[in-house]
Design a binder for these strands. Sequence first.
DNA 1: AACACTGTCAACCGCCTTGAT
DNA 2: CATCAAGGCGGTTGACAGTGT
Length: 387
Amino acid sequence: MGRSPCCDKVGLKKGPWTPEEDQKLLAYIEEHGHGSWRALPAKAGLQRCGKSCRLRWTNYLRPDIKRGKFSLQEEQTIIQLHALLGNRWSAIATHLPKRTDNEIKNYWNTHLKKRLAKMGIDPVTHKPKNDALLSGDGQSKSAANLSHMAQWESARLEAEARLVRESKLRSHSLQHQLGNSGVPMPPRSLDILKGWNGAWSKSTEGNGGVPAVTAIGSDLESPTSTLTFSENAPPVLTAGVGDNSMRMIEFVGSTSGSSETRAVKEEGEEDNWKPFENSTHVPEYKEGIENSLSFTSSLHDLSISMEGTWTPESLRTSGTGHIHFGNVMGDEGFTDLLLNNSDDLSLSDGGDDSDKGSGSEYSEDNKNYWNSILNLVNSSPSDSPMF
DNA sequence: AACACTGTCAACCGCCTTGAT
DNA sequence: CATCAAGGCGGTTGACAGTGT
């Protein structure tokens, strides 16, 4: 039916914010919290619509925003997550807590997208523009594999978003007592990547190779996602409810700061998961379940044996019961690859990317590109600020 | 110095989702 | 179930700055 713009009232200011307006907004939120955005402008004495105030706060005035140049690590993270999640900037932003979705989106559009394009890589699909080069060698199947994982992640993000919302509701009154600054809570988000990059080695140490991927985030208060592969069953997605008869990858809550996988959820948490479990309005989740079933075949397409357990270590190494993501590139870092190629290719870029795909040098770049993503996903950067 | 072109990014717009009624 | 209000998200715009000619 459509909705009239929220800013169409006469007298409401649009355009760039002045320092005075910023000060008014900051002062009000610091004292009262933002509460209802629609009601805020009048209370704060601003001639703006609530939407504009919210945007100014979340994208600029929030005290927990890191501004300035993106680090190589952040670039890597953005590219990885974009390959997995697509243009879901808010989801990507949850993994870069000090960056806003708007900032990430801008950076992608102005820097990273162009850089990938110059490399002959479709920034939308993250596939080489001349995909024929890679067909049949397992690279594109690895990409499909990533896509499945992305669907899992999408479904899980939806669920975690629910958790955040409900958690916020529960804690709202408490926050007020503590002096609500309006600062958003830390993202209740740990994901497959975090599990891979940060906690796999921990979770498998001294536990006899228990097939659970426990993401451990001491700085996060949320229940963490646990990826469990039953020994003889294909992985399926569940929502942290252990009594489901379906064969599932279980996302089981675990207490942060503890290395123990926790199968018992926090009080009331199960209810939070129920909408997710029985979701009828999250098509991605349902699709994720369906695709997770086909994921097994994808794994087999990659010559992966699932007869053993799927552990973090097994993903990092090849062998029986282990997943091997093809030829992992050597020491060349992904961002280095991008940076190097961006310079080289920008000099030789004649505007016709399709030509580049025909060169053997270029096909190597394309292979390296996917190898890089897979390698990064597999790697466990101990110095990563994110994981 | 002046102009054109390009890049950057804050802000807006329109649509979607969610929750209340 | 329908409707509405509100918040959130992603795409797009436009002002400004920087660079090239």
